[in-house]
């Protein structure tokens, strides 16, 4: 579980996050949604330790990040898996080497043991037979799956995903969404997904945090999103005709 309390963060005197508090529970897919500039990425990077908030606390299963020593912070980072928007696979490494990278860096496991684990997670993300290929030789969807495999290879407690569906066709996007949800439930991971994709919201939104102008404007589940009267979230989610009709249909039963 990750708990954030009153997080504030500014850049160049401009306050981006204005006191956001939330609890992201384990085994659930937690989504952060909001318009561009609402502070989603800053919040995610604060959770990852890339940005340091000026105010507030972030605690990982009770461990307050800002109170930890450098070694303890590094320890937490080894418990984190991250799926970047552009996959961020290492160009010079093969798929197999990319996935095994965290294990080679942080464990003393033998090559055979690492390879066995790599084979297992690649099979888990339905990617068999691509071990020797370079990232440039596989499709965007496959790259995302390799990135997911790399993120879960060392059994992380926390999984962060930044725009996991960007640049993917609808079918592949659903595959990736389902994979994230399955892995979250299977390994009881605390998953936080930063997304713009309303399909993802409807598919995997166990818990949704809606940010507007650096503030928490709404919080709930994908079911509650249909019933809410909160103007900010209604305006954001139902900005397209398709979703307006989906909502109307849902409300009519």
């Amino acid at each position: 579980m990750i708990e954030i309390k009153n997080i504030e963060k500014s850049f160049g005197g401009v306050k981006i996050l204005k006191g956001v508090s939330c609890v992201f529970e384990a085994g659930k897919t937690n989504l952060i949604i909001g318009q561009s500039g609402s502070g989603k990425t800053v919040l995610l990077k604060s959770l990852l330790g890339i940005h340091t908030p000026e105010m507030g606390t972030i605690s990982f299963d009770g461990r307050i990040y800002s109170d930890l020593s450098a070694d303890e912070k590094r320890e937490i980072r080894t418990e984190i898996g991250m799926l970047f928007q552009g996959s961020a696979l290492f160009d010079s490494m093969t798929v197999s080497e990319n996935v095994g990278f965290p294990l080679r860096m942080f464990t003393n496991d033998s090559s055979a043991k690492i390879q066995k684990r790599v084979d297992f997670v690649l099979e888990r993300v339905n990617l068999v037979g691509a071990h020797k290929k370079l990232p440039s030789e596989i499709s965007g969807g496959m790259q995302k799956r390799v990135a997911i495999a790399r993120a879960i290879v060392n059994n992380p407690k926390y999984l962060f995903c930044d725009e996991p569906n960007s640049g993917l066709d609808p079918n592949t996007a659903i595959l990736i969404d389902n994979l994230i949800r399955e892995i979250t439930e299977e390994y009881n991971i605390t998953t936080v997904v930063n997304t713009h994709d309303m399909n993802s919201v409807m598919e995997i939104g166990d818990h949704i945090l809606f940010l507007k102008n650096g503030l928490k404007a709404w919080e709930g589940t994908k079911e509650e999103i249909f019933l809410t009267e909160n103007e900010a979230i209604v305006e954001f989610v139902y900005s397209s005709e398709l979703f307006k009709k989906v909502r109307e249909a849902y409300l009519k039963g």
């Binding site: 990852l48 890339i50 991250m82 961020a88 696979l89 290492f90 160009d91 860096m105």
Partner: peptide
């Protein structure tokens, strides 16, 4: 620089490298 642009350096940092 390419690693910076494609977030590969961020990936290393997040992993604790």
């Amino acid at each position: 620089g390419s690693m910076r642009v494609t977030e590969q350096i961020d990936a290393l940092e997040v992993m604790g490298v």
